[in-house]
Amino acid sequence: MSKARKPEWLKMRPPSGERFTEIKQTLRDHDLHTVCEEASCPNMGECWSGRDGPGTATFMLMGDRCSRGCNFCDVKTGGMDPLDEDEPANVASAVAEIGLDYVVLTSVDRDDLPDQGAGHFAETIREIKKRDSDILVEVLIPDFQGDAELVGKIIDAEPDVIAHNIETVERLQWPVRDRRAGYEQSLAVLEQVADESDAFAKTSIMLGVGEYHHEVYQTLRDLRSAGVDVVTLGQYLQPSRSHLEVSEFVHPDVFDTWERVAEEELGFGYCASGPMVRSSYRAGELFVENVLKGDGDISEARKQARTDA
């Protein structure tokens, strides 16, 4: 299936535009990485260019090399570099220069570090908030090997959204994810976020890796039981021939069904579901922004996010 031609709904225009070029140059000037580039995200041009707003870029902290080797991910593995102590301040400067009011931070896994990078993550959140407390910060964190104390460091830095991706259904955690990751471990991280912080708890599921419908439904139920507020579902796309093959190109109608199930049946605050949706997706960010900066009406925030995205 992975060698089959992509269906029409998965064809995207290459990134371009003045805003896209401006953001890319700012990132290079500050020697910063984005997961948009490193993971070959298909929405990079759309998110960076924006529509009526300033656009979105997901900053990737702690280098461009990961200590793990997930079979779906295009980020380079091994050869870890020391942390850049100036990175938290550099990210905050870039955020100010670009003019973002909603910032997404993620990172590679750094199992090689004593605190797995949790302190560096927290410092970056604080640097951004110190410069402008009105900026909304979303973080997409590793599992920190399930260490509750390290997850607590992120919570204590008070981001507005804490995301951690479950990635796939329980049966397929391996071969999709690195063996150090795990379904129960990820659920525990998300449950801690939901129980101990005021932040929105968020996660993402990839479809098209061999899952069955009943497994997706059970995963959504487990996530909601853990207290997750926001979930995204998107199509897995094979970054290269050496990565996990695509099992199925899931039709957009199926994604629409999962969106309805998540929100109307299971009670998620928001679900972004579609072939090109990724964990850091503008519509989801707009939902959070509309709730936190609007009147708090979730139904209205959903409508507005889908209109503006």
Rank of each mutant, 00 (worst) to 15 (best):
V288A: 12
K11L: 11
R28W: 11
A39T: 06
K24T: 12
E259Q: 15
G55E: 05
E285P: 00
V104C: 14
V169N: 02
G99T: 02
D52I: 14
C73A: 07
V231N: 05
A94Y: 00
F59Q: 02
S186R: 06
N290S: 13
S247P: 09
K129N: 01
P42G: 09
T257S: 14
G78Y: 11
P275R: 08
W9E: 11
D74W: 08
N165K: 01
Y270C: 12
E18I: 13
D156Y: 03
D115L: 05
V103W: 03
L140Y: 03
N165W: 02
P14H: 05
I141Y: 09
E167Q: 03
R306N: 11
P142G: 06
R282W: 11
I125T: 00
E46W: 03
P88V: 00
H251Q: 15
A118F: 01
L237C: 07
G152N: 09
I205P: 04
I141F: 07
D256G: 13
R278V: 08
C70A: 00
R126Q: 15
L244M: 13
D147T: 12
S197W: 02
D81T: 15
D295V: 11
E149K: 15
S280M: 03
I166L: 13
D253V: 14
E127P: 00
E46N: 08
D31R: 14
F249N: 11
